[in-house]
């Protein structure tokens, strides 16, 4: 496992190589702090052994925003940073939606919303009792509209999947909002929930490292409260 912290500036520069946007487009960055902290302080993964059966799984369900994940995986050495310079070209392995069969470190092919959480639930069931690995799935607040997520939240809660964490990156892009809060949707189904923002790496890491012995964990990250991370 790599232990060197990822410098936020370096990761942002890598993201800019994907997006071609020097201004740090917020839509490309709403997930960046979460993914960076996950690979810095939470996940047990090894770029030299991307198929290790006991690796932690990071499941990017919000596949339409892969730039930050690509950047962090490149920074961690899963593939050369040069791959970031021609994303979605004919010869590139990196597309606007990621393909797990093409990219080391990408656990699922995603893009169509509402598939990552059900897949992560299946992974958690498959790993439970067989591996120390945990499964961390990232969804967006608007993505929660998809009914497949409701099914998966219910199944994970009833099955008590302690090895599953769902991170909801809440950039308030859902058109109708979530009366009572997003965390309440998970809590009523038996999940442990935490509300946090992305202004402090320490608080974010603490939330993402939190686990419960007999239930899954939801971490709702409000990315609209702070403009930049405090490293």
């Amino acid at each position: 496992m790599t232990t060197t912290a990822l410098a936020p500036d370096r990761v942002r520069d890598l993201v800019a190589r994907v997006t071609g946007d020097e201004k740090h487009d917020p839509s490309a960055h709403s997930t960046l702090d979460v993914v960076r902290v996950l690979y810095d302080r939470v996940l047990h993964v090894d770029p030299d052994r991307p198929d290790d059966p006991d690796r932690d799984r990071f499941v990017l369900s919000k596949g339409h925003g892969p730039a930050s994940t690509y950047a962090v995986l490149a920074a961690r050495g899963f593939f050369p940073a040069a791959w970031l310079d021609d994303v979605a070209s004919w010869s590139s392995r990196l597309g606007h939606h990621p393909d797990r069969t093409l990219v080391p470190g990408i656990e699922i092919g995603s893009g169509s919303l509402g598939h990552g959480l059900p897949l992560a639930v299946g992974m958690a069931i498959g790993l439970r009792g067989r591996s120390p690995a945990r499964v961390v799935v990232l969804v967006g607040d608007a993505e929660l509209d998809e009914g497949s997520n409701a099914e998966a939240i219910q199944v994970a809660g009833r099955f008590g999947l302690a090895n599953l964490t769902c991170v909801v990156v809440d950039n308030h892009s859902d058109g109708y909002g979530w009366p009572g809060g997003i965390a309440a949707r998970f809590a009523v189904e038996g999940w442990t929930t935490t509300d946090v923002d992305n202004r402090s790496d320490d608080r974010l890491a603490a939330a993402l490292n939190r686990r419960d012995a007999d239930r899954p964990t939801a971490v709702v990250v409000d990315t609209t409260r702070g403009s930049e991370v405090v490293a």
Partner: peptide, 10 residues
């Protein structure tokens, strides 16, 4: 979805 996730873990 669960079946797919199970298969992804072997």
């Amino acid at each position: 979805g669960v079946a797919g996730g199970l298969a992804l873990t072997g």
